[in-house]
Nucleic acid binder design. Structure first.
Lengths: 160, 160
DNA sequence: ACTTTGCTTGTATAATTATTCAAGAAAAAG
DNA sequence: CTTTTTCTTGAATAATTATACAAGCAAAGT
């Protein structure tokens, strides 16, 4: 019976590509792909896959694959944009701290400055840290969206 | 109320050092440390801390801290810590400013970075000033406590 | 003083997730 | 082929976790 294998495969894809926040949500997504099952089975599948449920930065929850728990070095892309230099993005109040690889902070900060996204008032860069002052009226998801316009993949760097 | 800050600190320690598998379990551990609270509060604390619940190898579940930790060179001994370079530590909102003697800022900031205390999101250093961005959920005394773990005497530098 | 505002918390409950139980299906053994 | 064992699953339920609500409290303003 390879139904299970296919379903498990689909679950992995769905969790990696969408922001799945509950098992019922996952259940619906699977139905749209033609898998019909129950929440009980999903609970078992998720346990077998070691998928963790983590609080999201926007106030909800997300299921995350175990290897996504640790920022993956393998996906460093030094192509268009030196996103590989970015290790994490974390918020505190109306500030955001971007951790970079040593020496990257100034370069990345100047890229942000040159694009001047509305949500960002300004940046200050050290050697491996960028401090980002956000506009008072914008949300955190708004800031991330603004950055992602020219920093594709930045969402994956958001911590917590 | 610094009860919350202390409790949150304790939660972090407990989760990092023990194999906590449920909120009730955590509740018991906290009671043994003298904290009396309820499951509801723990749920909120864990959400704020972005602690994830992950299936464990042994068939159970564990709570895990978000993995934004720096590799552990934290065992380095800074026995002769250049505390003399520090002139003052002062808070403003969720920021702290450390004034140092000229030229000391970068060195001291990198020491803080290498220890990566939980309470501190990141630092940016100039020549004689370090800006320290603190985590939203921690108190000022919590920050000072976190720093004093490897910067004995820092308390004496706190202004106000 | 008195409000007001915002934060923290507990109770009770809702929502979600895990597991028990039984049953059906496939593989393995006889 | 028949029996036995192992897997997988759904339904029901247990267990766990999240949240609505209200109360308590402190800081800040009037």
């Amino acid at each position: 019976m390879k139904v299970k294998a296919q379903r498990v495969n689909a679950i992995v894809q769905l969790i990696e590509n969408n922001r799945v926040g509950s098992q019922d949500e996952l259940l619906t997504l699977l139905e749209q792909l033609g898998f019909k099952t129950t929440q009980a089975t999903l609970s078992r599948d998720l346990k077998a896959l070691k998928v963790a449920k983590q609080p999201d930065y926007d106030g909800g929850y997300v299921y995350v694959m175990p290897e996504n728990q640790v920022p993956e070095e393998s996906e460093l892309s030094y192509g268009d944009f030196p996103l590989g230099g970015i290790l994490s993005l974390e918020f505190s109040g109306n500030l955001a701290v971007i951790k970079t690889r040593p020496g990257f902070a100034n370069g990345i900060a100047s890229v942000i400055d040159s694009h001047g996204p509305y949500e960002v008032l300004g940046t200050i860069a050290g050697d491996d840290t960028i401090l980002l002052i956000t506009r008072e009226t914008v949300s955190r998801t708004g800031v991330v969206s603004g950055l992602s316009l020219f920093m594709p993949g930045i969402r994956d760097k958001v911590v917590g």
